[in-house]
């Protein structure tokens, strides 16, 4: 009987879970396109000094607010005559960093808190989750502005305030995912095999919760980028003359009647980047679903 079952089983090639995720993601054309755009943005930001572009800080009184397509300034110039292409590429460095770092920090802190709360449960859960709930009383934008306002403008302070904003939602997701996993039969089975809490956490819990939390966190990066841009726009984030998309949008807004196309460029960059991040995390979510 068992023999027949074995004979029917197709020959099997061992492959890892992540290989499967990558294979499924590769089949998702939208996600791949977004990944390509993001990769181009990140690479150009990293290697900006090596690219044949102008100095983003070099102002020129004569070449102010040149339109797109001007010789020497393919994307025009801003209100101080600085090259837009260079400023957008250099601006990507700061903007992407401010978009990703707080989420990364919040992912680390929030996952830890949420997994602990979800796995231990009881009073520990109540303590952590009710403290986290306090933060939900404020809209995230307001909270970020308040913290940044209190700490003062600056890149480091923006990072801190944005990290604080993203810890609560990530903790909540981590807690709910972990509670669901904790009550799964395979955790009971592992306990019945004599595993202690740490071993079970390492072998059975982490692998099953980090993925979903990561997907959720990745969907927050676009929000974070927009928030960071907002902080700069309001003057509590990055200070001029640093090139940063939100700040550029702010300073160029006065020029919107004179040269609307150039003024819209930083906004377009924010829009495209956050859209790509969102679509990519969507694709990741479906690629990580093992039940095909």
């Amino acid at each position: 009987m068992a023999v027949a079952e074995i004979e029917r089983a197709p020959a099997f090639k061992r492959r890892g879970y992540w290989a499967g995720v990558a294979r499924r993601l590769m089949r998702d054309r939208v996600a791949i396109l977004c990944l390509a755009i993001l990769a181009a943005l990140v690479l150009s930001a990293i290697f900006a000094p090596l690219l044949p572009i102008q100095d983003p800080y070099q102002a020129s009184m004569v070449a102010r607010l040149k339109p797109i397509g001007t010789a020497g300034h393919p994307l025009g110039t801003d209100e101080q005559g600085r090259d837009m292409l260079a400023r957008l590429i250099y601006g990507g460095r700061l903007t992407l960093m401010i978009g990703l770092m707080p989420v990364a920090i919040a992912f680390f802190i929030g996952s830890t808190l949420g997994i602990v709360a979800g796995y231990i449960g009881g009073r520990v859960n109540t303590l952590i989750m009710r403290s986290i709930d306090v933060f939900f009383a404020f809209p995230s934008v307001l909270l970020a502005i308040a913290i940044s306002g209190a700490l003062g403008a600056g890149i480091l302070n923006s990072l801190v305030s944005l990290s604080v904003v993203f810890v609560p939602p990530i903790t909540r997701v981590a807690e709910s995912v972990t509670s669901a996993v904790r009550s799964a039969d395979y955790i009971e089975a592992a306990r019945a095999s004599g595993g202690n809490a740490l071993t079970i956490m390492r072998v059975h819990v982490l692998g099953n919760v980090l993925g979903p939390i990561f997907v959720y966190a990745s969907s927050l990066t676009s929000v974070c980028m927009i928030l960071a841009a907002g902080l700069s726009f309001l003057g509590v984030g990055v200070k001029p003359p640093e090139p940063e998309w939100g700040l550029m949008l702010n300073t160029l807004r006065t020029a919107i009647y004179m040269n609307p196309m150039v003024a819209a460029l930083p906004g377009l960059m924010i829009f495209v980047t956050s859209l790509c991040l969102n679509l990519l995390s969507d694709g990741l979510r479906s690629a990580m679903n093992v039940k095909e």
Binding site: R14, Y17, A184, D185, Y186, E188, A189, A190, S193, G194, G195, N196, T199, V203, H204, G207, N208, V290
Partner: peptide
């Protein structure tokens, strides 16, 4: 299905108990 860890190969699932003991 629920009583097997979806992220472990069946060999790892079976070996888990003996390993930690």
């Amino acid at each position: 299905y629920a009583s097997l860890n979806p992220r472990l190969t069946v060999e790892d699932s079976i070996a888990f108990g003996p390993r930690i003991n």
